Computed example of a mutant assay.
Amino acid sequence: MVTVATLVAAVAACGGPPTDAGDTTASAAPTAIENCGQRVTVTTAPRRAITLEQNATEILLSLGLADRMVGTSYQTDPVLPALADEYRTVPVLAKLYPAREAVLTAKPDFLYSTFTSAYAPDAAGPRADHAALGIPAYLSPFACENPADGRATMTFDALFDQIREVATLFGVPDRGDELVAEQRKRLDAAVATGTSSHGTSALWYYSGTSTPYVAGRNGVPAAISTLLGLDNVYGDAEQTWPAGSWETIASRDPDVIVLADLTRGGDGDSAASKIAYLKKNPATARLTAVRGNRFVTVSGSSMDPSIRSVDAVEQVSAGLGTVRS
């Protein structure tokens, strides 16, 4: 767990956008945290933030921080409907990751990504380089450059810690608490609904046809499997997203197949294309789940740690009830 080295000492009103009752968006006292092996220091609450991909974007928008954003990038799915209006007010810097020059041109005072790749030299550039320019660059603890510096296993408690930490850095801790409380309530309800799924074996099928990429340990699917009592048929894989084989999948014959519905348009990306392939491929057409149409669909982006991950728990919990009926 990342630790707060210097907590926010005070939040004093200094104008700015209207806020919710009980919360103040103001200049936070200097705050320094250890984040993925680097020190991230915020001298005042950011007001010119750039999010480098959609998961980070939707977390800031969910915290009501659209007016503090001067850029976003790398939209992988349609933005959540509840956030669409706010999203349209934020400049899009690039279809994929913005280059370092585009980032600096926007004059940010904070960068945020939930993927390490956003800070690659051929993308926005290393976090340390931005820190040297006085721009704090935050990275999700699930995606540290050195995995030993972060969270090896995704848990919802750790995801909620990240949301609270980001809210604190922006001087809106009350909003973080409120968002986490809402997410926690939905999570608990979904888990309670899905308790009858204990012992059900499941394949988490992410992408690909000739080589299927599936969920192994440590990621969002593993966390959901634990919460709902599912037996992940690739739970013995060391990697979070290993390359599977249809022969192994056939031998393990899952009761249910959870399909990632990806919008990028590649081979075996959409849920519909996955189902079509599973039904025509001789190696999979006789699977118990395929013969019984026991498919559960979740959005692809919800299978990464994000504000959508609770959506995935709800979708799987509800879907399991449907395919068992």
Rank of each mutant, 00 (worst) to 15 (best):
D149G: 13
C144Q: 09
A137C: 04
F142H: 11
P126M: 05
D157T: 08
I135G: 05
H130Q: 06
D149N: 10
T153K: 05
A148H: 11
G150Y: 05
S140C: 04
T153C: 06
L133V: 09
A123S: 02
A123P: 00
A123M: 01
P126H: 03
I135N: 02
P121E: 11
H130F: 14
R127F: 07
D149L: 08
G125D: 02
Y138C: 05
F156T: 02
A152W: 07
A143V: 14
Y138E: 14
P147K: 03
E145F: 01
A143C: 12
T153E: 07
A131Q: 04
R127L: 09
E145N: 10
F142I: 15
Y138K: 13
G134I: 03
I135Q: 04
T155V: 10
L139Y: 03
F156A: 09
A132H: 05
G150C: 12
D129R: 11
D149A: 14
A148T: 15
F156K: 00
L133Q: 06
E145K: 02
A137D: 02
A123I: 00
A152T: 14
A124S: 12
A123Y: 00
A131R: 10
A124T: 06
L139S: 03
A128Q: 08
A152E: 14
A143N: 12
D149K: 08
A152N: 11
Y138P: 15
